[in-house]
Deep mutational scan, measured.
Amino acid sequence: TTYYDVLGVKPNATQEELKKAYRKLALKYHPDKNPNEGEKFKQISQAYEVLSDAKKRELYDKGGE
C-alpha cells in the first residue's frame, strides 16, 4: 500500500487534493470518533506528512521514505 493509496489519491494529485483527502479521512478515522481506528489514523497522518512536503514527496516518489 502506498501513501497515495492510504489517502485515496492519484500520484499526480495536487497539494489541494491531498489536503482535502487528508481532512476527510482524518475526520472519519479520528480516535475521538473512531477509537478502534487509531492505527489507521496514524497511517493517514504519516502519509499526509510525507506527501504534503515537496522535498519528502519527491524523495518518496523516487523510492525512498
Rank of each mutant, 00 (worst) to 15 (best):
F41P: 01
K33Y: 15
P11I: 08
P35G: 08
L18A: 01
K42T: 10
V50C: 09
A26Y: 15
I44H: 00
E37Y: 15
A54W: 09
P31R: 05
T14I: 03
K10Y: 08
P35Y: 05
Y4C: 01
N34V: 07
E65R: 07
L59A: 14
Y60F: 04
F41L: 08
K10A: 13
K10G: 10
K33L: 15
G63M: 15
V6P: 00
Y22V: 02
H30T: 06
E16D: 12
K33G: 08
E37S: 11
D5T: 07
N36E: 13
K19A: 15
D32Y: 07
H30K: 06
L51P: 01
A21E: 04
Q15T: 10
R23C: 15
L27D: 15
L27F: 10
I44S: 01
A47I: 06
E37F: 15
V50Q: 04
K56Y: 06
G64V: 15
A13V: 11
Y22R: 01
K62L: 10
S45K: 14
A54T: 10
E49R: 09
V6S: 03
V9L: 07
K19R: 13
E49C: 14
G64W: 15
V50A: 06
K40S: 06
N12A: 06
L25S: 03
K20A: 15
S45F: 11
V6F: 06
K10E: 11
E37V: 06
D53K: 04
Y4N: 01
Y3H: 06
K20L: 14
K20E: 15
E16N: 07
K19P: 00
E16M: 08
D5Y: 04
A13Y: 04
Y22E: 01
K33E: 10
I44L: 07
K42V: 08
D61G: 03
D5F: 05
N12F: 07
P11W: 10
E49L: 11
T2A: 07
A26L: 15
G64P: 11
G8Q: 07
I44D: 00
K28F: 09
L51R: 00
V50E: 05
A54S: 09
G63A: 13
A47D: 00
G63V: 11
Y60K: 03
E58I: 07
R57Q: 03
A21N: 04
A21D: 01
E16Q: 12
G38I: 15
V9N: 00
K56V: 05
P31F: 06
K40G: 04
L7I: 04
E65K: 11
S52E: 03
P35N: 09
S52T: 06
G63L: 14
N36T: 13
Q46W: 10
R23E: 15
K62C: 10
H30E: 04
G63I: 12
T1C: 15
T2M: 06
I44M: 04
T2S: 13
T2K: 05
K24W: 08
L18C: 03
V50K: 03
R23A: 15
L51A: 01
K28I: 13
D32T: 12
P35E: 08
G38V: 15
Q43F: 07
Y29R: 01
I44W: 02
H30V: 05
R23N: 15
T1K: 13
K56N: 08
G38F: 14
Q46A: 09
F41C: 05
E16R: 09
Y3F: 08
A21H: 03
A47R: 00
N36C: 11
L59R: 11
G8D: 05
K28D: 09
D53S: 06
Q46K: 14
A26S: 11
Y48M: 05
P11K: 10
E49W: 11
L25Y: 03
T1W: 13
Y48D: 01
L51V: 03
I44K: 00
P35V: 08
P35T: 08
A54Q: 10
E39F: 08
K20C: 12
D32I: 10
A26F: 14
L27H: 09
K19Q: 12
L59P: 03
E65N: 12
K33N: 15
T14H: 03
N34M: 08
Y3I: 04
G64R: 14
P35S: 08
D5Q: 06
G8A: 04
L7Y: 00
F41W: 15
N12L: 06
K19L: 15
A54I: 14
N12K: 05
D5C: 07
R23W: 14
R57Y: 02
L7C: 01
K33M: 13
S45V: 15
L51F: 01
D5E: 11
Y48P: 00
Q46M: 13
L7Q: 00
V50D: 03
Y29V: 04
E49P: 01
K56S: 13
A54M: 13
